[in-house]
Amino acid sequence: MEADVTIILKKGVADPEGSNVKKALNLLGFDEVRKVQTMKTFRIDLATEDRGKAKKDIDEMCKKLLANPVIQTYRVEIR
């Protein structure tokens, strides 16, 4: 089973990379770009078909390593 785990900066936390990309896109003439947010996705292949277990394990992975709760949240999508 594959899962996409996306790590997202919490609302209000500065995203300098996103702001820089927005600026670059504006400079390239894409004037309609109002905001760019960066997020990181990990595609994780799990040796299980149990969706409940997969979800639980991924929560644990996020808490232990993938996300820092001070500045990040995460979204899990089981494919």
Partner: peptide, 13 residues
């Protein structure tokens, strides 16, 4: 148990 602070990407990126 969990981080209470973060060292995030520099403002200058």
């Amino acid at each position: 148990n969990y981080p209470q602070a973060a060292l995030a990407i520099n403002d200058s990126s």
